[in-house]
Structures are given as C-alpha cells and as structure tokens.
Simulated scan of single mutants.
Amino acid sequence: MTVKNHFPASETELFDAGGGLTRRVGAYADNAMIVEVHFEKGANFAPHHHPHEQITYVISGRFEFTIGDKTYVVGPGDSLYKQPNVVHGATCLEAGTLLDVFTPHREDFL
C-alpha cells in the first residue's frame, strides 16, 4: 500500500450504511484506520464480530453498547474497546457521532 498522509474530508464520501447509519473513512494504512460513524436516534448496529481490534470514542449522542455479555450506556467523551472476534453491537439512544479506530484496517470499508 502506498503511504498517504492527508485525508481531507472534502475528498471522501459519506457512505449510507443503511438503518440510520452513515460513515466516512478517514486516515488509514495497513495497520490502522479511523472511521466517523453517524447514527440517527433509534438506529441499531446489530451484534456482529470481526478479526480487528476496535476502539470507539463517543463524539456526541448517547448509545447502549453490548460487548460480549456486558452492556454499557455511554455519552460524549466515553470510549470503548472491543477485542478481536468479540460479539458487539449498539443502539443509538440520542442521535450522535462515533469515531472508530480499527487495527488492522477494514478492507471491507474501502
């Protein structure tokens, strides 16, 4: 992969992921990726898993996350860690935006 250092938002598209979710891929390289995810109130990200490590930072809104067998209600400034292959999902309680960091990058998002 050619190294790219600058990822202007004006040059990226907001992808409609369906069900009240949109996302924008930001900077990425082989070993890391950042993704901005927008949720409408009531949007549900169904339980799923993937081989990537994931850190989520709540920019705005309120969310109920289930990670494994635990549930957390989170708001602005909170963050969460999801280890590889753990089942996790979220429901948006108040419209908001998350910032997700993945390692390695999500090829399926490119």
Rank of each mutant, 00 (worst) to 15 (best):
Y81I: 12
K82I: 15
Q54R: 03
R62P: 00
G42T: 05
E64C: 09
G68P: 01
E36T: 14
I34R: 02
S60E: 12
T71D: 06
F45I: 03
E13S: 12
V35W: 01
P76V: 02
V25K: 00
A43K: 07
P51N: 07
D100N: 09
K4S: 13
E36R: 08
V87H: 06
E40K: 05
G26A: 10
F45A: 11
L14W: 09
A95F: 00
E36Q: 14
N5T: 15
T97F: 06
S10R: 15
A43D: 05
G18V: 07
G26I: 02
S79R: 03
S60F: 04
I55A: 02
V3E: 12
V87C: 08
S60N: 04
L80T: 09
F102N: 07
D108R: 04
T103C: 08
T2E: 13
E94T: 14
R106G: 02
I67Y: 00
T91V: 15
D69S: 13
E53L: 10
A90I: 08
P104G: 02
R62T: 03
E53A: 08
H88S: 15
T71V: 10
T2S: 14
P76M: 01
T97G: 09
D78G: 05
Y72I: 09
P51I: 07
L93P: 10
